[in-house]
Design a protein around this nucleic acid. Structure first.
Lengths: 348, 348
DNA sequence: AGTACCGGGACATATTTAGTCCCGATTATG
DNA sequence: CATAATCGGGACTAAATATGTCCCGGTACT
């Protein structure tokens, strides 16, 4: 498989691509306007004045921008560069467009798409994690409680999360108890990794995820359990993965009748312990000593992160549930989501 | 003319390419070694430990490098990336190789080559200026006197030179007096621009460059002239352009007999007021109230900067003169220099 | 057992970046 | 012709980041 130069560069210098993208956006925007001023431009591009200024100073030094007292404009070589750069940048801009389409169709606040297919490439999975970590960092504010689920994707987020200054007033908590999985991918483990990497606080929930009603009730009588559960339920930010319903059911060792019932009800996706059909209806739930639907609905920022072509449909299902604010996914899954959307539209 | 992606990127983000290059160099070096430690690697690559560490940490996070207690090694995907990147990087590495060839053949301390032909493209000219400014910054030390000649190339260097912190204890001086040229390209103008852009001191030499012996002698009796000339002659760093002999002679309005004499002597190149034949012998000089040959020979750092295919031969001639330490040029001129070198080798 | 080199921790300091406000000049507008 | 809005660029502080340097415990080879 031949990878494009952009993908190669994304591996060797992902943050540099962001710079490239930003400068390109500036050139593009300036190109669309006759004369535009720094502050006006900063407004359009949603940058602060100073950052934009650093870039325009640079672009001016490169001779790509003419800056005069009446505003700025592309120079001849700037316009020329913009044209020549277009095909290369389409790859990046293409994702931006894809992001916007997914965003508006599923009514989300924000969508971030990394290029590639995380099923096919370990590197894309890491990229997904990086993007997730970056988004999460952007939303965290002092005093926040961040509830996090498990999974390999989330483990990647944890691995890419960092902070120079310790965020001592942020608490990470698991959204749910433990699954019978490798310890590396359990919510508890991930929570502790995230907290360590950012210098934040964390609380763990040492309770099996899969509980009968009775056991659940009696556990909830325990004061120390209650306390941490209350913290969890106060989460302002929820960061969760999305799984395939049947795979998750098996992993959770759901009873066979329940699995059969779910299947017949069209269970397709799983997220934070709930099972969804393709329309985003909850078809199965389990008593949990963690986040309930209420908290998902009331949490201020619900961030979903999942990728891989095979997960496209599942992601679409959960997005239709309608309580997510932000989605971080990969190109393959995003394209699959669009296809799903269009197929459904045709049916109607 | 279709430009390659590397060239496009060089316009939009030249410094980012340096980062790319650096990371590639690291991968390459690590790939050539079985296991290598951080400090050893820093030595080989001439980087400080900390900078290298930042990069290796990054490359590790990208999964391109395996770091263990016994040292570091390329990971599988690192090796793969290195292979896939090779053709793209050849463009940059090609210049590095070219630099080394020029460097060793002309016995220089350092050679920097920017890609392209500054005769053909304004952008390459600017790049040349940027490279020159960068090199100069690298050599400047507190207390230095920097002597600078005129010319359009040098004007570009001045335009790209900058310093965040004022370099108040550095003095810029013109290497010679004024030529009858546009004021923008005169040494005096350039000196003042450089000083302003770096917060340095400067002294000007208000004396015509083209002087008869008598006038020269009487001017040198002037105490204030003498003083600045002494400063000029104490320069530790000399930054000069290189011109075509005949073009410069005409610009300097040399007397016709002198021009004819020079021509018959094979004058090919001009630099800091001296004319050189193709072997680097001085075939003509003029009394100057500026740098003399002695100072060129004793100055600690003599930096030549000139580009353009048509100047290749002239640059080669001045390099053979043998008192330059550093050459900054462009790809077109460098290739021409190599051709010149080989043609001469054949003759012998 | 000793030595040399390994990665990683730590930390003071230098440098860069970012946010913000001000200013005089210029242009559009009434 | 006057006035308001907008322009680029200067200035300055606070915050973030990069850098040089040394130390440490572990490991591998001698």
């Amino acid at each position: 498989m031949m990878r494009t130069i952009v993908e190669l560069q994304q591996q060797l210098a992902p943050d540099l691509l962001e710079v490239l993208k930003r400068r390109y956006r500036i050139l593009q925007q300036v190109g669309q306007t006759e004369y535009i001023g720094r502050r006006a431009l900063a407004g359009v591009l949603a940058m602060t004045e100073r950052v934009l200024r650093a870039e325009t100073d640079f672009l001016k030094a490169q001779g790509l921008l003419d800056i005069r007292q009446s505003g700025m404009q592309l120079s001849d070589s700037g316009r020329q560069l913009l044209d020549q750069l277009a095909p290369t940048m389409k790859e990046l801009a293409g994702l931006t467009e894809l992001e916007e389409r997914i965003r508006s169709r599923y009514g989300l606040r924000k969508v971030v798409i990394v290029s590639g297919d995380s099923e096919a490439s370990e590197h894309v999975k890491r990229e997904l994690g990086r993007a997730g970590a970056q988004v999460l960092r952007g939303y965290m504010a002092p005093g926040d409680v961040v509830a996090v689920t498990g999974g390999t994707t989330m483990a990647h987020v944890a691995g890419q999360l960092s902070s120079q200054r310790p965020l001592a007033d942020i608490r990470f908590v698991p959204a749910r108890g433990g699954l019978g999985e490798s310890v590396d991918y359990q919510a508890n483990t991930i929570v502790s990794t995230m907290a360590k990497r950012t210098g934040a606080q964390y609380r763990l929930l040492h309770v099996p995820d899969h509980l009968g009603e009775e056991a659940y009730q009696s556990l909830m009588q325990e004061p120390n359990i209650r306390e941490i559960v209350e913290v969890i339920r106060s989460a302002r930010i929820v960061l969760h993965g999305i799984g395939d319903a049947m795979v998750m059911a098996r992993r959770r060792k759901e009873a066979e009748p329940a699995v059969a019932a779910m299947r017949s009800e069209g269970a397709l996706a799983e997220a934070f312990g709930f099972y969804f059909d393709r329309s985003g209806n909850v078809v199965h739930r389990m008593p949990t000593a963690g986040l309930r639907l209420e908290e998902i609905q009331t949490a201020e920022v619900v961030i979903a992160i999942a990728g891989g072509r095979g997960k496209g449909e599942a992601i679409a299902a959960v997005m239709r549930f309608g309580h997510d604010d932000v989605l971080i996914t990969d190109e393959a899954a995003a394209l699959e989501m669009l296809r799903t959307f269009e197929a459904d539209a045709d049916e109607v």
